[in-house]
């Protein structure tokens, strides 16, 4: 791979935090909360699921090591082919869920 961007497949992400913890540059920020699962059979105990609120990568810190892609147990991160585009303000190098799911 030649340092294309990293793409997020939101549907696969369970907010497990492994990528954020393994990232050596600390460039991944994740916020999540839990919600009860609806439509359980009657009498079943309440179960909850994680809901991803925020997934952000700060590309000004990322060194494209790919550890996050390798460590994700749910294949929610994958290499894209195009590099991340330049920006005129450093804040614009923080990409949120919408940008990350669109990385080409």
């Amino acid at each position: 791979m030649s340092h294309g961007a990293i793409r997020l497949i939101e549907a696969n992400c369970t907010s497990c935090m492994i990528c954020a913890r393994e990232c050596p540059s600390w460039c991944i920020t994740i916020d999540s909360h839990t919600e009860p699962i609806a439509d359980l059979p009657p009498g079943a105990r309440e179960r909850t699921t994680n809901v991803l609120d925020r997934f952000a990568i700060d590309w000004s810190l990322c060194m494209f090591c790919g550890i996050c892609v390798e460590e994700c147990p749910f294949d929610a991160l994958e290499w894209a082919s195009d590099p991340v585009a330049a920006a005129t303000r450093s804040g614009r190098l923080v990409h949120e869920i919408e940008d990350l799911t669109d990385e080409q």
Binding site: P24, A86, S90, R92, L93
Partner: peptide
């Protein structure tokens, strides 16, 4: 922004700490 060395004891976290920057190109 300092890249992977942002936490180093000897690195300035990005040249924009010192001069006005017109464009930031990400990549490593």
């Amino acid at each position: 922004a300092g890249g992977p060395y942002w936490d180093s004891y000897s690195v300035t976290k990005g040249i924009d700490q010192l001069v006005a920057v017109d464009a930031y190109v990400p990549g490593c």
